[in-house]
């Protein structure tokens, strides 16, 4: 499959998962923030040098304004961080962020804290649970029981997002490239998986991804991910399961 228009393109726009440093704020005291940042940087100067930072206001119960954000960004820059975005902030602050040309992410809670998920068009399509019993073989008795299993019967199309919060996700159809499916537990795709699949979205490392035909843009388990380019060629277009073993993704044939 090839497209003439793609060959001629001067650039390609792609969605990609990136790892960000998150600065969770608990206080608006800028002096204290400066002091603690210095301390942190002193511990691992190389690690933090020019690290992109997202400021998370989600835990903060005080309100701050645009000029506060301005100062906080200057302070971060002075400590060799690169402020790239904010999340969990009031709407007024979002304006200030846009004026400063930094990104605004939707509030956290959908992903692990060091993982930011981008979606071109956040369109959350959540269905009520239709078949509650969790798949038996996947659940070991020691594990806490899964609260919910989300079953999707139609194809998940480009631009759509499905998130099984707190449980497993079963998709009985295909997942298109440009679509994103997430679950806090396991993900099962009985059609072709062409989009992005993120299992263990809140860090559950025992989560797995099962699919009938692997052509995914990206597969992630508890934040460890693999992109399409890196999928082993003998596993492409076959039925596989993907799981984490010693912080490495393992792809195993189901045949």
């Amino acid at each position: 499959m090839m497209s003439v228009s793609e060959q001629d393109a001067a650039a390609a726009i792609k969605a990609r998962m990136v790892s960000l440093t998150v600065l969770e704020l608990f206080s608006t005291d800028l002096e204290e923030l400066d002091r603690q940042l210095l301390e942190k940087v002193a511990q691992a100067p190389k690690f933090f040098r020019n690290a992109p930072v997202m400021i998370d206001f989600g835990q903060l119960d005080q309100e701050v304004d645009g000029s506060w954000l301005e100062k906080a960004c200057e302070l971060l820059s002075a400590n060799n961080f690169v402020p790239v975005g904010i999340t969990g902030a009031e709407e007024s602050l979002e304006f200030a962020a846009r004026a400063r040309n930094i990104a605004v992410w939707p509030a956290a809670g959908t992903a692990r804290h060091d993982t930011v998920v981008e979606s071109p068009q956040p369109e959350i399509k959540e269905e009520p649970v239709q078949s509650p019993p969790a798949p038996q073989e996947a659940v070991t008795p020691q594990e806490a029981p899964h609260t919910e299993t989300l079953v999707i019967r139609q194809p998940v199309r480009s631009g759509q997002k499905v998130y099984a919060r707190g449980g497993d996700l079963i998709v009985l159809a295909s997942v298109s490239t440009g679509a994103e499916i997430m679950a806090d537990g396991h993900i099962h795709v009985y059609g072709t998986l062409r989009g992005r699949a993120l299992a263990g979205a809140r860090g559950k490392e025992s989560a797995r991804v099962f699919c009938n035909d692997l052509q995914a843009d990206l597969v992630s388990i508890a934040g460890v991910y693999i992109i399409n380019d890196d999928l082993p060629s003998d596993m492409r277009k076959t039925a596989v399961q993907i799981y984490l073993q010693e912080d490495q993704l393992k792809i195993e044939s189901l045949r």
Partner: peptide, 28 residues
């Protein structure tokens, strides 16, 4: 071609979620 197919896929997603039939939970 790839870009047209991608857009059609996107439209199919909207047909399944943003139409009156979808909103009223009727036959798609």
């Amino acid at each position: 071609e790839v870009s047209s197919v991608r857009d059609s896929d996107r439209i199919l997603g909207l047909l399944a979620s943003k139409t009156r039939r979808a909103e009223e939970g009727r036959e798609p």
